[in-house]
Amino acid sequence: MKTQRTDWGRRQPPLAGSSFELYAWFFMRVSGLLLVLLAVGHMFIMHVFNDTLNLDYEFVAARWDTPYWRAFDWLLLALSLLHGTNGLRVVLHDNISDTTVRKLSLSALYVTSLGFFVLGTYVIVAFVSKV
């Protein structure tokens, strides 16, 4: 019997071959669990235990004086960008049916994410306090 598809445009589960989507699904769970600690922790540290009204150059300089906070911030940067990029990849894939527009959007997303990852990494690594 001929199967009628009623869900055109949605992601289809891969029938064989690449298991990329499975790993992407798993990555979202693992990075999500880590981000519950890193991102929610970051929000509590910056907005509840401290106040952003007190945020100035010296605060960041003191924070990045220890390699541990640089590592914390870099891990947060990398995981949130990857988690967000994969999330947006799925959203774009699900909502844009035109192949050309979808490919352009996805390319723009990957280029943007890579650019911000390089910028953020450079800032965390290269920062030297001037005070």
């Binding site: 967000g84 947006l88 959203v91 943007t112 911000f116 910028l119 953020g120 001037k130």
Partner: peptide, 26 residues
């Protein structure tokens, strides 16, 4: 998720300004 990703990019830019010194950042 989409909104937080947009804010994340803005946040990376505003934090990156710290390389330009205290006056620009503050």
């Amino acid at each position: 998720g989409v909104a937080l990703f947009g804010y994340l990019l803005l946040h990376i830019i505003s934090t990156a300004l710290i390389l330009l010194g205290p006056e620009v950042y503050e």
